[in-house]
Simulated scan of single mutants.
Amino acid sequence: MNIIFVVIIRSFISFFSLLILVRLMGKQQMAQLTFFDYVVGITIGSIASTLSVQVNQNTTATLAGMGVWTILPILLAVLSVHNVWVRKVVEGEATVVIENSNILEKNLKKLHLSIDDLISQLRNQGVFSIADVEFALFEANGKLSILKKSQKQPVTPGDLNIQTQYEGLPTVLISDGVLLTDALYSLKLSNAWLQHQLGKQNIINISEVSIAQLDTKGNLYVDLMGDKQSYVISTQN
C-alpha cells in the first residue's frame, strides 16, 4: 500500500481518536489547566502524532497507549474530588505571595518566580501598587488571585444600600442573518413582534442582522452586517 495513503488513513484514525479522548477528559482540562494537565495533554498529542506518521508503529498498541494516558487522568480527577490528599498531590495548592502588602519572598522562591514576574502579574490584573493588596495567591493553575484592601475595592450598589433589578443572561434571537425560532418561541414572542421591533430602525430583512440579543430588561441589541451601525431598541414602547 502506498505510504502516503497509509499516513492519511492513520491520521484520520489519530485525529478522531484524539477528539473522542479529549471529549472524555472534559472541559476541566482547559478551564483549570494545571502543569500536570499540561504535561498529560502534550503526551497524548505526542502519541497521536506518532500514530499518524510513524507507519512502523503498531496502530492498536499506540491507541492503547493513548487510552491509558486518557483514563488515568480521569481516574485521578475522580479520586481528587473525594480525597483531599490526592487533590493536593495531583493539583497542588494555592501559594500566598503577598500578605497585608508584604511580599513573601520565601514563597516566591518556591514557585521559582521573581519579584518582576509578580509585579507583571499584578499589572495584568489592573493593580499597579503593592500597597493596595491585602492578599495575593498563585493558584494551582498558575493564575494570580488578588484581594485588594477594603478601602481600595470598588463601591457596589450593596455598599450604598441601592436596590438593583435582576439581570439575567440575554437571549440571542438572530445570529448571522438567521432567525433562531426556538429562542424566540421560548420567550413566547412571535416573528411579527420581532419584525415590528426591527422596523423601529427601518431594518426590513433579518438577513441584514449580524446578531440580535434581547436582555431581561427588554432592550434589543441589534448589530448589522458589514460593520454598519449597531442599535439598542427598547421593546417597552
Rank of each mutant, 00 (worst) to 15 (best):
Q165Y: 09
T216N: 02
D37G: 08
Y221R: 07
K109C: 02
S207K: 14
I115T: 14
F138M: 09
Q54V: 12
S114N: 11
K27E: 15
I204N: 04
N102P: 00
V232E: 06
D176R: 09
T43P: 13
H112F: 06
I4F: 14
Q236F: 07
S49L: 08
Y166I: 05
L21H: 13
L79K: 05
T62P: 01
R123I: 06
Y231M: 10
F135I: 00
L33K: 06
A94E: 09
Q165G: 14
G126A: 07
N56W: 10
T60S: 10
K109F: 07
L118M: 00
V96A: 02
Q213H: 08
F128D: 08
I13V: 12
Q57W: 07
T235L: 04
R123A: 04
L169I: 13
D132T: 02
L111Y: 11
S145P: 09
G177P: 13
T60G: 07
S210F: 09
F36M: 12
S80G: 13
E91G: 07
V40L: 10
K88Q: 15
Q57P: 01
D37Y: 08
W85D: 09
Q201R: 11
I44G: 12
S230F: 07
Q125N: 11
E167S: 08
S150F: 00
L113Y: 01
D223Y: 02
T95W: 02
P157N: 05
A192T: 08
F5Y: 15
V39K: 06
A192I: 02
D215F: 01
V97W: 00
N205A: 01
M66L: 11
Q29E: 07
R10V: 08
L220A: 02
V97A: 01
D215S: 02
E93D: 05
I206A: 05
A183T: 11
Q163S: 09
S207I: 10
V78C: 02
K217P: 00
L187A: 06
A212L: 02
V6R: 13
E93K: 05
L180P: 04
V178L: 13
Q125S: 09
I20T: 15
T171G: 01
V81W: 06
S150C: 00
Q195E: 15
K217E: 02
L76H: 08
L104W: 01
A136G: 01
L147R: 03
Q195L: 14
T95H: 06
L179I: 04
A212Q: 02
M66C: 07
P73F: 00
V232T: 11
L147D: 07
N107C: 03
V172N: 13
I44C: 12
E208V: 05
L179A: 02
E139Y: 10
M66V: 10
E91F: 08
L198D: 01
R87A: 15
K152S: 02
I4S: 14
R87E: 15
D227I: 06
